[in-house]
Design a protein around this nucleic acid. Structure first.
Length: 273
DNA sequence: CTAAAATCCTGGTGGC
DNA sequence: TGCCACCAGGATTTTA
């Protein structure tokens, strides 16, 4: 279980740009048809073949590949998806569900044991990422803007932070970490927050994501890896996530695990009262 | 409107 | 030790 979130996806994108920009896709093999969402597999292969990769970006937890005929190849790794570059004659990966052949003889392989990940090929990326909320690390994501967004909501904060239409890129790990840094209980209702608490949450979200990005992401059980196969380092710096029963780094009390909105949620009952 | 539950998947875990 | 039921988890869809 790894759940690539904003820092992990951004790290992967950074690792893909060098080897992939300027390459042309010469063929594609889809070994699990449900992976491809927006068109039939035959149409997908026909349409992507011959397109050159001009740029690679991240939007939320999606990877967006800008292709030379104007199409966008969009990939979501969901829980256990990995993107690996391999020589074309490398042994097959056990869960390599989609293989992109490149004009330099290498392959981009989408590997996903749980088969949750998805691949899209669209002319207009809004079809896939058009409803996402703001990017939390972007310059135009301001405190005033965040206050205005929170003031429109009244539900519990944990599910709100996981809602990609509210804010893009945060998943289970960084929602828990940000709420801990802000000192706010995951079940607090959005409409009970003071201005000061909203500001603390805003700063906490950005601090946690920046730190995780500097650590090149969080790897559990080897599921998330960078393109070169290396693991992230942020698992060593987590404060509450997956730390049930261990001491809170702030007060020393035991970290608790509860379920909020159907998701495992870790927090410190004393610091996040 | 919101919220909860079902859905998709399978490796890992815990119980016996 | 071996078997097996069950769980996690992002996003979407369905139900209340």
């Amino acid at each position: 279980m790894s759940m690539p979130e904003l820092p992990e996806v951004e790290t992967i994108v950074n690792g893909l740009r060098g080897p992939l920009i300027g390459r042309t896709v010469t063929g594609v093999r889809v070994r699990w048809e449900n992976i491809v969402v927006t068109s039939a597999v035959a149409e997908f292969g026909r349409r992507i073949r011959g397109q050159r990769i001009l740029g690679i970006r991240r939007r939320g937890k999606y990877l967006v590949f800008e292709l030379s005929r104007g199409d966008r190849l969009i990939i979501h790794l969901k829980m256990t998806g990995q993107l690996m570059l391999r020589p074309g004659d490398a042994p097959a990966d056990p869960h390599g569900h989609t293989i992109f052949d490149l004009d330099d003889g290498n392959q981009l392989r989408f590997i996903d044991p749980r088969k949750f990940g998805r691949v899209y090929l669209v002319a207009d990326e809004k079809e896939v990422v058009g409803n996402l909320g703001p990017e939390p690390l972007a310059d135009d994501f301001t405190l005033a803007g965040f206050v205005a967004l929170v003031r429109k909501r009244k539900g519990a904060l944990k599910p709100l932070l996981l809602n990609q239409q509210f804010i893009a890129g945060i998943g289970n790990i960084y929602a828990d970490e940000a709420l801990f840094v802000a000192g706010i209980h995951p079940q607090r209702k959005a409409d009970t927050l003071t201005d000061g608490e909203i500001e603390r949450l805003y700063q906490a979200i950005r601090q946690v994501l920046r730190q995780a990005l500097a650590d090149q992401g969080t790897t559990f059980d080897g599921a998330y890896r960078q393109v070169d196969g290396r693991e992230g380092r942020h698992q060593e710096n987590l404060m509450v996530f997956r730390r049930k029963g261990q001491p809170c780094p702030c007060c020393g009390g035991a970290i608790k695990r509860i379920v909020v909105g159907g998701r495992g949620t870790y927090f410190c009952p004393r610091c996040q009262g």
